[in-house]
Simulated assay, not measured.
Amino acid sequence: MKKTLSIIHRTAALTAFLLISSFFLSTVMVEIFGGYNAILTVKTYICYAVWLLIPAMATAGITGTKLAPKATKGLVGAKKKRMPFVAANGLLILLPAAIYLQHLASIGSFNTTFYVIQAIELVAGLTNLTLMGLNIRDGVKMTRARSA
């Protein structure tokens, strides 16, 4: 059972990380190389795909908690301390920003408000990628330690 839970945890965490990476990279690339229609397409894609991200994040959190319910120290403790910030950042900054940016793009409002929110979204997204990357690194270390 624990092995299955671990596989589900890894899959959900990696899915969430890859989705956020794709949101971040597609946003940066379209801002550099795309026009307004391309920006709208990317913002619309993100608004649809975020509904895959939310269950992936929830699954990673739930399975992580079930795998080590009482751990508070070491690598597991560090992972547990990062996740509330990742979740809050996602729900309070990234999700509303994604929806609002898509709305602004859909009405062609590429003004200062759009770009300020876009900058906030990119910083918050990079923060989450960094924290999740640290969790992945720590998870790999724990897996290697168990195999050795």
Rank of each mutant, 00 (worst) to 15 (best):
R10L: 10
A12C: 09
A12P: 06
A13L: 12
L14M: 08
T15F: 05
A16C: 02
A16S: 09
F17E: 00
F17K: 03
L18R: 00
L19M: 05
L19E: 02
I20H: 00
I20F: 04
I20N: 01
S21F: 00
S22K: 00
S22T: 06
F23N: 00
S26N: 05
S26L: 07
S26Y: 01
S26G: 00
S26Q: 02
T27C: 06
T27L: 07
V28D: 00
V30G: 04
E31F: 07
E31L: 14
I32W: 08
I32P: 01
I32L: 14
F33N: 14
F33V: 10
G35D: 12
G35H: 11
Y36F: 13
Y36N: 15
N37T: 11
A38C: 07
A38M: 15
V42P: 02
K43E: 13
T44S: 14
T44F: 09
Y45Q: 12
I46T: 13
A49Y: 10
L52T: 08
L53I: 10
L53H: 08
I54D: 05
M57V: 14
M57S: 13
M57D: 07
A58V: 13
T59F: 03
G61K: 03
I62R: 06
T63M: 04
T63E: 05
G64E: 03
G64K: 04
T65W: 15
L67G: 03
A68W: 07
P69S: 07
K70Q: 13
K73W: 02
K73M: 11
G74C: 11
G77H: 05
G77S: 09
A78T: 14
K80Y: 04
K80G: 09
K81R: 15
M83F: 14
M83N: 09
F85E: 10
A87L: 13
A87E: 11
A88M: 15
N89Q: 06
L91T: 09
L92E: 09
L92S: 14
I93L: 14
L94S: 12
L94T: 10
L95K: 09
P96V: 10
A97Y: 08
A98Y: 15
I99C: 10
I99D: 12
I99N: 12
Y100H: 15
L101Q: 08
L101F: 05
Q102E: 15
Q102G: 12
H103P: 02
H103T: 10
L104V: 03
L104W: 02
A105C: 03
S106R: 07
I107Y: 04
G108Y: 06
T112K: 12
T113P: 00
T113D: 07
F114M: 02
Y115N: 10
V116N: 07
V116D: 02
Q118M: 10
V123H: 04
V123I: 14
A124M: 04
A124P: 00
G125S: 08
G125L: 05
G125P: 00
N128D: 14
L131G: 00
L131D: 03
L131P: 00
L134G: 01
I136G: 01
I136L: 08
D138A: 04
V140S: 02
T143F: 11
R144M: 08
S147A: 15
S147M: 15
A148H: 11
A148F: 07
